[in-house]
Design a binder for these strands. Structure first.
Lengths: 246, 246
DNA sequence: TCACCTCATTGGTATAGACCAGATGTGTGG
DNA sequence: CCACACATCTGGTCTATACCAATGAGGTGA
């Protein structure tokens, strides 16, 4: 589709500095191995101050051209991953189909009382315990999403004994003979703070996309809920009713 | 659902200044009639510089608590409008159901050659002319979205004679006896620049959500495509497969 | 009455320099 | 070989000041 490019007829660039960086980036004069030089060096190169430079970099960051890792530096963004939250294909397969390389890291898998909002979503009384699984995923090496799953403990009594770095979708099907049914989700543009920011190694307040999803099985039973925090420039949501619910 | 609140267990605030402003906002000590005092005044009040203050305000802006209008000032954000891009209910009705007040302003309605990307989406040769309708919409008085429609000129030969500040959905049904069929759309977090920024009166580079949608009728004929540019803090996307395609 | 102009107000951008804090790599000592 | 401490590199935050540019209110003149 339109691929999120902002070089439309109706969108225009802004400052000269920003434009200069944009050109240098496009022609590959700036980044070495997808990494930009330090801010101090860039400020010197463009004969400006760090503050002004950082303004420009922030704009390019919001535009999705570059991103930063907290106190580590600036990097060039790759193309967005196309994501359909209605499809329940596992992450590995989804990325493979787009010729990308995915990996998943398990952060924790524990039993915990879910926050009120989560209990409500899962239609359980406030204070109910769920399995809480926190993971983060990379695409082509880059950290792109932090996910927090809350699973029904009754349905998945022994899930902690499984390999949780793989696809939960596959586990559901293979170990518990569950197929997905209805899905509901919510997408909110938010700023990443706290654990999502830490885990994604982005500085506090970086822009992101929160996707809250509630999954049911064929009979309508609520299986789990996952809250995803995406780096904003790493994803493009795409849905087509002709595809069916997948 | 989770309503986009970032006061989860896993998200935390950041700097002291930011926190102070957050508290003052929450307790209504800051805004008069939803408008914040000038930056210079705020900087004095919190004993800091404008630069530092603006950093903090930007964070709160990304968090969706406040927003700015270009060179006009800072304002307190209202709650998000819940939006399901699969539903074809008209804007007026959608907002009314959420006890909000909507209005639409027509910017232009002309015949124009569509950009390549749009022609591709509409499955027409490059260089095809379409009706191009540009509008902007408000919710409770606030500018929240800029929309650019591209309509098939053959299907809607006399659409310029209609009232274009109302619902196109209703026009399609009432004047052209067309009902919506399949829909496909794409959501991209982007920065607002150029015309969308100007029309929404936000400063260049403000964060936004771009939604590109292609609409078909019952027989699969492509009717139109609309590109929406939302202010990021004004909308929450929500989809539930149990609702059906609406 | 209305179009136009002027000017005060407001945010937007810029300079210059300093220090803080997390991330990393290096080297030392066990 | 490994664990730990330290130096250094990086971005993150902050002070202080200045000027630019769009907005909007008020006044002026046709």
């Amino acid at each position: 589709m339109a691929d999120g490019s902002t070089n439309d007829t109706i969108t225009q660039p802004s400052s000269k500095l920003e434009q200069a960086i944009r050109v240098d980036l496009a022609e590959g004069r700036l980044a070495v191995d997808r990494r930009l030089p330090p801010e101090r060096e860039l400020a010197e190169r463009y004969v400006t101050t760090r503050i002004t430079l950082r303004e420009a970099l922030s704009h390019l960051e919001m535009d999705g051209l570059i991103y930063r890792e907290n106190r580590r530096g600036w990097f060039v963004s790759d193309r967005r991953l196309v994501y359909n939250p209605l499809w329940r294909t596992d992450f590995q397969r989804m990325t493979r189909e787009q010729n990308r390389q995915a990996s998943t890291e398990l952060i924790e898998a524990v039993s915990a009382i879910a926050p009120e909002a989560i209990c409500a979503l899962l239609e359980q009384p406030v204070g109910t315990e769920f399995w809480r699984i926190r993971r983060r995923r990379r695409v082509d090496g880059r950290l792109v999403v932090f996910v927090e799953h809350h699973l029904n403990k009754t349905v998945f009594s022994d899930i902690l004994e499984q390999d949780l770095t793989g696809s939960l979708t596959n586990l559901y099907r293979e170990k518990y003979a569950l197929e997905y049914g209805d899905v509901s989700f919510e997408i909110n543009p938010i700023s990443l703070t706290g654990m999502p920011a830490t885990e994604l190694r982005c500085s506090d307040g970086t822009f992101g996309l929160q996707i809250v999803r509630v999954n049911r099985d064929q009979s309508g039973l609520i299986l789990d809920c996952d809250v995803e925090y995406w780096r904003h420039d790493a994803v493009s949501i795409r849905i087509d009713t002709r595809d069916g619910p997948g």
